[in-house]
Amino acid sequence: MSCFRLENVSYRYDKAPVLQGVDLSLEPGEILGLFGHNGAGKTTSIKLILGLMQPTQGKVSVLGGLAGDPQVTQHIGYLPENVMFYPQLTGREILKHFARLKGASLKQVPALLEQVGLEDAMDARTRTYSKGMRQRLGLAQALLGKPRLLMLDEPTVGLDPVATADLYRLLQGLRDEGAGIVLCSHVLPGVEPYIDRAAILTDGAVKASGNLGSLRQQAHMPVSVLLTPANGISSLEKVIDESATTGRMTKTGQGTLRVDVQPREKVALLETVMASGEVADVSIHQPSLEDIYVHFIGTGGLAHRGGR
């Protein structure tokens, strides 16, 4: 049973299309990164899965049921972007209130607060909380009742690096226990090591999706090979020029040579330079998630990325 499945989903807001023909699904035990520029439709997709809105067209099924069905929402944890709480209540009171609403046991409240690092502040009113503390409380709230589908919108905003690492460790633990997790974030280098799959949205459509390897293939992005010459940079250049590869060469400031080659030519290039004995050191840079993202999103210029 999929955590959620969007099939050919479209959504219009006041006749303006927000989502168009989106196909997206998440299986248990998987972390999906959902990326896109502002207004690309990330939040709308999440709201459709939460059952807050009905799609204009297409089908949304969540945890084997209908989106918005109380039986289904009981098993979903959600952390909205910029989560806010009742300022007059303490962290513990708020979490208890939400636990009651979710039909979750009240016993887990102190443990959850401890897990997110709020044990010292749980009896202070949330009026006094910092952004990071609110975010932690929001996380605790999303984790109530062991959700089978967890959706986190910008979960690391306001968290310090240690807390961020803790969060990702926690998420991996939940993933290993079989939860499906959706991560929306703009901090791409931060989430890259932790996601199993990424979906990139632009203008309400899925531009690309898959794991990092398949995204790199879809993007046809060159791999950068940094070569430190053994004898001289010009002789190294000569070796590459004479080889069968079509890499583009750039000299970097530190006397190294950068060659951008297509992924399939990478091994051939390496074999050639290794055999020539003209190279002292090699490092290879795969395109990062950020590079891939820019490749898919960045074609339309800034106006395109800024949303409307």
Binding site: N82, V83, M84, F98, L101
Partner: peptide, 14 residues
Amino acid sequence: EGGTLLLLMTYPLS
């Protein structure tokens, strides 16, 4: 305005 309505509506609560 307090930002809690959206969160409440994601709970099993009509």
